[in-house]
Design a protein around this nucleic acid. Structure first.
Length: 1066
RNA sequence: GGGCGAUUAGCUCAGUUGGCUAGAGCGCUUCCCUUACAAGGAAGAUGUCGGGGGUUCGAGUCCCUCAUCGCCCACCA
């Protein structure tokens, strides 16, 4: 025994992980340089937000990336994985602001911009370090010398250049749009950052007086709303232009749907139909009359502001809903906005950025928060006798994902990226196959989303982010703006390659916007209504500067231009990630060599937000796609099928898993769950810190600050602990027993290696002669040739699996091979030979070689344990000496990926070996069921075809070693001694064991009967099949033959079984 | 409302172009601390493949339909 005997019987991952990781870094394995002689393989990390620590979703994402990059590196690619983090504008600012409020009761305005940004940088430094540390602990082979941050100098430069370029091409413009306004954060948030919450509310019916109704016409118009306070911003009331036609159309549609509807949908549709029919008879005349009045230009008196607003006809007003009429508030409702656009209505913004009402709402309401305003409006209307029914109703309230406060639709100046052309370029890249999305079903969503070509609002009213590099000034007369622009152009400091000028004409009140035109805006505050064609018309002068700092800045500021205070949407900088990380806009060697990157690995929720935008920005900036493959991986859900999140309390911290199970176990488990078709559930458990008992989380207890352990009854604290009493309790871990399987596997591998290392005494590196490998030569034992065949198949299967991102399949193949083939059979069968000096050299070389190959195959999934074993193996078997005398690479992390000779594959041998394994199981079964002590040698005979019998005879040593059983005779001609022998049937082999006096007839009969039933079923189905002429005629011949063979085998099995039954009953 | 995905053993999931006497791990039962590993070894039990139709010689696999669940997108004043 060698020094290896001192190796512990558990892999000490806690000390090995940091040691090995340091060693890899020191060896520079993850820091490639451009090398024209080699092919690059590049991955850019989806940069995690610096909002908080990584969770299990990140663990999955990064495990898969590291698996791919390590595998490619071993295959000989010049592999680069660029790490980094995302400043995550609004998300990070919201987190810091929330904490500021919780801990110091301050708002950002109390601190001021500079101070707040400083605080956020501190937060960022803290979490970036934590995140990058987590990645290192997971073993991620990132090139840390190329670490980027979306808000660092390099990225900032890329952002400025991109913004300038798009501005210069007029692909960026400013305009007024209705945005989702977060009144808490006082910023616009994108649609993606808004979620709907169902709350209880009311449906208020309001009556608006008609001005000068003609005789017979209604004196009031009733509208219904869930938000009465917005009526202060109403600029019209709408009715459908042709309510009869609309109702008819709806009715026929409903009737059609009813005809094809399922039984369960029918009642719903029927009741809808009823209500439409009822309206047809009760409300139609009135609505028709209103439509006529609208056509006639009738006006409405706004009940609270005294303004006069028109009654208009617009199809947005649905005759089947509410009162059939709808109030129009263009500045505060997306649909009304469109109506206003069609009808040329003014847009009256009644809201201040903080959510209070402004002067446009009327003196009586200005300054009120929305909630108060609602009460006042309702009370005032009631007092005027203009309040109709108030129905209870559930309403969907849009909420800001970041601040968890209600969203207000709000009209604001915003910068937009014009998507038309950019989107098309990104669609083309996927449709013509330059970029492949895996699984392909996700391509549809990508294309559909881009096809809408909606302009991308990129400004955010935040302090944390890339400030928009535009200086602006408002001019009352556009001609002055032009003159100012000329002066700037004439400046000695002006250079067109780094300064660009736009003039934004401000449209006048009441002029309808030209759809799709961004240069139109209006001043809502102007009381006058100027003639759109007359001068002077107001305009904005915008100057965009590419460089930071730019000498022109001072000049602009002295000319009265002021820099925009807004920052860019965080996705703007993320969109540049694949090229900004490589140094763009500099023409760096890295960019030339590593771009386009190879594979992007991410999850499906950011295909549109991020992936699509990277494609179009890459094409715009570099002129090439950013990556050729996008792999979309599943998501991890908890035991209830819900996504994991800290806010639910079901999130698992990867560091907890690493601490408890090791990084390799975490990674293997992650890969093992990554199946192609679906998201995966990972039931989440609490682990009691007192007694280590693990028990399932429930929806209820996962949100409690303290939980009692059902095993020991003691309490522990959770992540929700806030009160000192709770915090003082020991903290319970959130974990999942799913990682045990992987941890056990790591341990199994470790111990198999430990065995091998302990048997390498006197290891001879001399190579095997090539001819030794030939089947005819008997140098290699059956098991050697068998394991080589298996190994070759598995290496191929694993390579193919990684190529198609079939991580689960890869993990399974390796698990089965390592555990079942290598440990349970091969190592067991080698024990004899290793103890025998004559057989030892070959056995040692084979063992070292197979282990070597297995370590290589497992390394991308489990880098630490495999590297540790690799280093130990190098100590006892530095030369593997199988196909050639080869010194193993210094580090497994840079070792060559296995590429084995096809000729090792031997299908026949594998199948014969399988029947050996089956016979062995049969014998073990018999021993167990007869209660024969394992020390007692079990003698048995087999009756089967001669070729199989001789194969089994060759393995007689194995029977002894693996089951303490002795094969005494074998062959076709063996005669059953029915008096003494127990027969067991394994496939087409009869195992005969001398069982005199040992058989429990009753139990045995039961078992045989069960087997018989199974056989009969199989026989019946096969007989039916073969008896069917059509089957024989139309099925492929090899299938028919297989059925015939199967039938014959079943028949002989049945005969043997029946014989055994007869024997038993004697 | 539109789209996508799922439903297979008590649990979590495999099951590639239809050829299945339907698999794995966990859990369960029985036996074993045999000097690599008890985080282990050996053996065993467990399924109308969500329901119903259809195509086919043959369906877990393809088509239709119903039911349930999940996700994405668009939305009701």
């Amino acid at each position: 025994m060698s020094q290896a005997s001192e190796i512990a019987n558990r892999f000490d991952y806690a000390t090995a992980q940091p040691r090995l990781y340091e060693a890899w870094l020191k060896a520079g394995l993850f820091h490639p340089s451009p090398d024209p002689a080699r092919q690059p393989y590049t991955i850019v990390i989806p940069p995690p937000n610096v909002t908080g620590a990584l969770h299990l979703g990140h663990a999955l994402n990064n495990t898969l990336q590291d698996t791919i990059i390590r595998w490619r590196r071993m295959q000989g690619w010049n592999a680069l994985w660029i790490p980094g983090t995302d400043h995550a504008g609004i998300a990070t600012q919201a987190v810091v602001e929330r904490r500021l409020k919780e801990e110091e009761s301050k708002t950002r305005h109390d601190l001021g911009r500079e101070q707040l940004v400083r605080r956020i940088w501190e937060w960022k430094d803290q979490y970036e370090a934590r995140i990058l540390g987590q990645l290192r602990q997971m073993g991620c082979s990132c090139d840390w010398e190329r670490t980027r941050f979306t808000f660092d100098q390099v990225c900032a430069r890329a952002v400025r250049h991109t913004f300038f370029d798009l501005f210069n091409k007029a692909l960026i413009f400013r305009g007024k749009r209705l945005v989702n306004w977060d009144t808490f954060l006082q910023t616009a948030v994108s649609d993606d950052e808004v979620f709907n919450e169902t709350v209880k509310g009311h449906f208020w019916h309001l009556r608006y007086p008609v001005i000068d109704p003609k005789p017979g016409e209604p004196t009031h118009v009733t509208v219904a709303t869930t938000r009465p306070e917005t009526m202060l911003g109403d600029t019209a009331v709408a009715v459908h232009p042709d309510p009869a036609a609309a109702l008819d159309k709806l009715e026929s549609e409903l009737a059609k749907r009813l005809a094809s509807a399922s039984a369960s949908d029918k009642p719903g549709i029927e009741s809808q139909l009823d209500s439409v029919r009822q309206r047809h008879s009760t409300m139609l005349p009135a609505l028709q009359q209103l439509a006529e009045m609208a056509a006639d230009g009738r006006q409405i008196a706004h009940p609270l502001t005294g303004r006069t607003i028109p009654l208009i006809a617009d199809e947005w007003a649905k005759p089947e809903l509410g009162s059939g009429c709808v109030k129009i508030t263009p500045a505060h409702d997306p649909n009304d906005y469109l109506v206003g656009q069609r009808a040329g209505l003014p847009r009256l913004n009644i809201l201040n950025p903080d959510g209070t009402l402004n002067a446009h709402a009327g003196e009586a309401y200005a300054g009120l928060p929305l909630k108060e305003a609602r009460k006042r409006v309702v009370a005032d209307l009631d007092a005027l006798g203009l309040l109709g029914d108030v129905e209870d109703r559930e309403i969907e309230l849009p909420m800001s994902d970041r601040s968890k406060t209600p969203i207000e639709p709000y009209l604001a100046d915003q910068w937009f990226v014009r998507m038309e052309r950019l989107a098309q370029s990104a669609i083309d890249a996927v449709e013509d196959g330059r970029i492949e999305i895996v699984p392909s079903r996700y391509a549809r969503g990508y294309v559909d989303w881009l096809a809408e070509k909606r302009d991308w609002p990129v400004s955010r009213q935040l302090w944390w982010g890339h400030q928009i590099p535009v200086w602006s000034r408002h001019f009352a007369d556009q001609r002055e703006a032009e003159r100012a622009a000329d002066q700037i152009r004439a400046s000695a400091l002006f250079a067109p390659e780094r300064a660009s000028i736009q003039i934004e004409a401000v449209a006048v009140e009441n002029a309808p916007e030209r759809p799709g035109s961004g240069t139109v805006s209006r001043s809502l505050r102007s009381e006058s209504v100027p003639d759109p064609l007359s001068w002077p018309r107001p305009a904005w002068l915008h100057v965009c500067l590419r460089d930071e700092p730019d000498p022109l800045e001072l000049e602009l500021e002295s000319a009265g231009l002021v820099r925009d205070v807004d920052v860019l949407d965080t996705w703007f900088s993320s969109a540049l990630w694949p090229h900004s990380t490589l140094g763009w806009p500099e023409a760096t060697a890295d960019l030339a060599y590593f771009y386009p990157t190879s594979t992007l690995i991410t999850s499906r929720d950011i295909i549109t937000l991020w992936v699509a935008r990277m494609v179009l920005m890459g094409l715009n900036n570099v002129g090439q796609i950013p990556f050729d493959t996008v792999y979309i991986h599943p998501k991890i859900l908890d035991g209830f099928g819900e996504t994991m999140s800290k806010s639910k309390g079901n999130g698992i911290d990867p560091l907890d898993i690493i601490e408890k199970f090791g990084a390799d176990a975490l990674r293997f488990a992650m890969a093992h769950l990554t199946t192609e078709t679906q998201d995966v559930r990972l039931p989440v458990q609490f682990e009691c810190p007192h007694c280590q008992h693990a028990f399932d989380q429930t929806k209820k207890n996962r949100e409690l600050p303290r939980v009692a352990c059902p095993a020991c009854n003691k309490e522990f604290s959770t992540q929700w602990a806030r009160k000192p009493d709770d915090v003082a309790l020991p903290r319970g871990m959130v974990t999942s027993d799913r990682f045990e399987v992987a941890r056990n596997f790591v341990n199994k591998l470790w111990n198999a290696a430990r065995f091998a290392l302990m048997r390498m005494d006197g290891y001879s590196p001399a190579p095997l002669e090539p001819e030794a490998l030939a089947d005819s030569a008997n140098t290699l034992a059956v098991e050697d040739r068998w394991i080589l065949s298996r190994l070759t198949s598995v290496a191929e299967g694993v390579t193919a699996g990684l190529e198609r991102f079939a991580f689960s399949d890869v993990a399974k193949q390796l698990y089965d091979f390592a555990w079942a083939d290598f440990c349970s059979f091969y190592v067991e069968m080698l024990k004899d030979r290793l103890a025998n000096p004559g057989a030892r050299p070959t056995a040692q070389r084979m063992l070292a070689f197979v282990l070597d190959q297995l370590l290589r195959l497992l390394h991308p999934l489990m880098p630490f344990v495999t590297e540790e074993i690799w280093q130990l193996l190098a100590g006892v078997a530095p030369l593997r000496g199988f196909e050639e005398v080869e010194t193993a690479e210094r580090w497994l992390a840079e070792a060559k990926w296995p590429l084995l000779d096809e000729n090792h594959k031997n299908w026949q041998l594998e199948s014969q070996f399988a029947s050996f394994q089956a016979v062995l199981s049969g014998i073990r079964d018999t021993r167990l069921r007869r209660n024969i002590p394992s020390k007692e040698t079990l003698k048995f005979r087999v009756r089967c075809h001669e070729f199989k019998a001789s194969f089994l005879r060759n393995l007689s040593k194995a029977f002894r070693a693996l089951a303490n059983a002795e094969l005494t005779a074998s062959g076709q001609d063996i005669v059953r001694d029915t008096q003494r022998e127990h027969m067991q049937l394994i496939s087409d082999v009869e195992i005969l064991v001398d069982m005199t006096g040992l058989i429990d007839t009753e139990v045995e009969l039961k078992k045989l009967e069960r087997e018989r039933a199974k056989l009969e079923a199989g026989l019946a189905s096969r007989r039916a099949k073969l008896g069917n002429e059509k089957f024989v005629a139309s099925a492929p011949p090899e299938i028919v033959q297989r059925e015939r063979d199967g039938l014959a085998q079943l028949e002989s099995q049945l005969a043997a079984l029946d014989q055994a039954l007869v024997n038993l009953q004697r």
